[in-house]
Amino acid sequence: MPDGPGAAGGTEKGDLYGRVAVSLTVLAFLVEAGGVVARALSVQRAPWGNMYEFSITFSTVVVGVYLAILAAKKNVRWAGLPLVTTVLLDLGIATTWLYTDSDQLVPALDSYWLWIHVSTAIFCGAVFYLGAVGTVLYLFRDGYEANLARGGKPGAFASSVLERLPSAASLDKFAYRVNAAVFPLWTFTIIAGAIWAGDAWGRYWGWDPKEVWSFITWVAYACYLHARATAGWKGRKAAYLALFAFGCWLWNYYGVNIFLSGKHSYAGV
């Protein structure tokens, strides 16, 4: 099945709206990046010391990665809507619940590993999120294609939205590439974290909740990458695994910080 025409639906007017939207996204990205830089200037360090700072940087990077892929002339404009909506949600959460005033770092975070470990963690999360968006859309589109193949008549939502998405195969491939590309970096993030933990807490791996969940996330993504290459597991099953893996990442970020107490608790959250 060929790719859909994109959100523009193939019309010139639709395409124009699409480009307006991208243009506004660029603007929003610049403003948000300005916010992150201002925060960094205000705290005079890497702005990743607490959940508020992590969240604003995270959403900026998500949009940045999306725009970078767009700039590389890849067909990913379809990811814009889910992406921007969730970025808005993330920013809302960041400013209403997670807001922390500018502040210095607690001694445990005062290390150059902060630059290495946290920046890669943020970047990995951003790319994993793009992958997850691709996977969710893949599941919808796959259902839609299966329905068409059975000779079913798609509903209004399916015919107006799903029809325009790239084909299930393209979405699946996009999600796989994105996840596979960043998986080595995620491995590096965990290892860098372990080295830092060795310096800061006197042990490299202590099954702290954050460590446990980054391990679970790693194993879940490893599982997905293997499943993707295994007959009988590729397709929807692998996609569910990918979503489980991203769910683990999300939980590792929000859940572990808020509900579990461990050594990764700083500045309240």
């Binding site: 099954w207 909740p209 446990v212 679970i216 879940a220």
Partner: peptide
């Protein structure tokens, strides 16, 4: 086989979860 390896991997990730929810002697 790859399939069993996959199942074991998945079990490993699931099996690690209780360790983060229940207090651990080693931690």
């Amino acid at each position: 086989s790859m399939r069993v390896a996959l199942i074991l991997l998945f079990l490993l990730s699931l099996g690690a979860i209780p360790g983060s929810l229940v207090p651990q002697t080693g931690v």
